[in-house]
Write a protein that binds this DNA or RNA. Structure first.
Lengths: 225, 225
DNA sequence: CCAAAAGTGTTTAAACTACACCCATGA
DNA sequence: TCATGGGTGTAGTTTAAACACTTTTGG
């Protein structure tokens, strides 16, 4: 806590924040990766991250990073896990707190300052090995996302404001990796009372579908599945 | 990540680990607190913590801290959350990762080097205000404990190796803060197959009770309730 | 009129809840 | 023998899972 010493010499370390930004991309669950420009892992892909600035909170860093990369303002963000292994970055002692974020399909890999490249990769085909311990981070993030889908409404973060029930179901199926029964799904989801049917419909190639929106676009704990 | 700069000057911070050690004490859920010896919060109670040493991982720090405080070797430990608000410690920038631990009722507040005092407080009557942001930490830890009881066997960390079903049930009731039906509880718990009945019994003031132990004393995800 | 997605109920099985009595022991 | 906690089963209700046909539209 206060900088008094433990048994071993005390550490002054770099503190970083990395962001695992999920998005639905081409019918798959994708994450945003950037190509590392320098250091021991030059050329490998990694989750975008940034060192914490003086006076910045961890969440501010995550938000700042996301804005810079996607331009999107309103993303869901939650702290995930902190990685502090002494050798995770061979150049310096860097303790990194991972956040996970959700962005709607549309505008994801906007621009990537500070990085050679940025791209969304399907989570099932990551360009391994990733830099640092970012594969652990990926596992951790996917686990969290899967489990949290079932008992919260955070899926709104992956969808546009208005969507059809089929689209919603598709997102669930993509992330959970299994087929869901349409009738049971609708019963359950509508039963939460978190969705509001609009009068407008989505017209496409076939029968028009009712559009819905989440009545509250903020994290809420409910049994969704 | 690598120590390249963000928009704001990069930060070299202290990294600490704090441990929220739960134990069952006098029929209540208790946590181990220590009295802060110096700094802006002198005299207040806080969760025990330590700065990370050179070459130490976060988990090592948590383990070291727990050993020093309790002498107990085999405690359940899990990373909880990281607190990095710039002003959480007015003396220095300290980013702290909280762990939560579970120790069996017996030997808890062993010895407290480096601290003026150490004591177990019931979670419902903490000596507020705690130092730093440790009240947030407490809330976070209790939430995690409650939810994790329901779908994992980590409760083993709060019990001695051998225990009766009534003792197990009592732990659940204390932590969840509500009464559980004895018959349903036994059905559910025995249905997990994680308990092994011993031939020995606990003899007390009344009818002897069958002793059980967890067949695996390692974290396992199962529907316990 | 055909293809494709939207929409809708019922039946069955499993899980959860509530509930009351007898048993074994120590004092 | 009495007080105390240990141990057991069932009925009613709720929740989850499986399942197929009709509707609406665009092409």
């Amino acid at each position: 806590m206060a900088p008094t010493s433990g048994q071993t010499p005390q550490l002054h370390a770099y503190v970083a924040v990395d962001v695992v930004l999920f998005t639905i991309d081409g019918g798959e669950l994708g994450v945003l990766l950037v190509k590392v420009r320098d250091g021991a892992f030059t050329g490998r892909w990694a989750f975008p991250g940034s060192l914490v600035g003086v006076g910045e909170s961890l969440e501010q860093v995550a938000t700042r990073e996301l804005r810079a990369l996607t331009g999107v303002e309103d993303v869901y963000l939650e702290q995930l896990c902190t990685f502090g292994d002494p050798n995770r970055d061979p150049q310096a002692r860097v303790v990194s707190t991972a956040y996970f974020g959700l962005a709607p399909a549309a505008g994801t890999p906007h621009r990537a300052p500070r990085y050679a490249e940025a791209a969304v990769f399907p989570i099932r085909r990551l360009p391994v090995p990733l830099a640092y311990d970012h594969e652990d981070m990926a596992v951790c993030a996917v686990d969290r996302l899967r489990s949290k889908l079932a008992y919260s409404n955070i899926v709104y973060g992956l969808l546009p404001v208005e969507f059809t029930l089929s689209e919603l179901q598709e997102v669930y199926e993509i992330i959970l990796g299994r087929h869901l029964d349409r009738r049971n799904f609708r019963k359950k989801i509508l039963g939460t009372g978190l969705l509001k049917a609009l009068t407008r419909q989505r017209r496409g190639a076939h029968r028009p579908a009712t559009l819905y929106r989440f009545s509250r676009r903020r994290p809420t704990m409910v049994e969704m599945l």
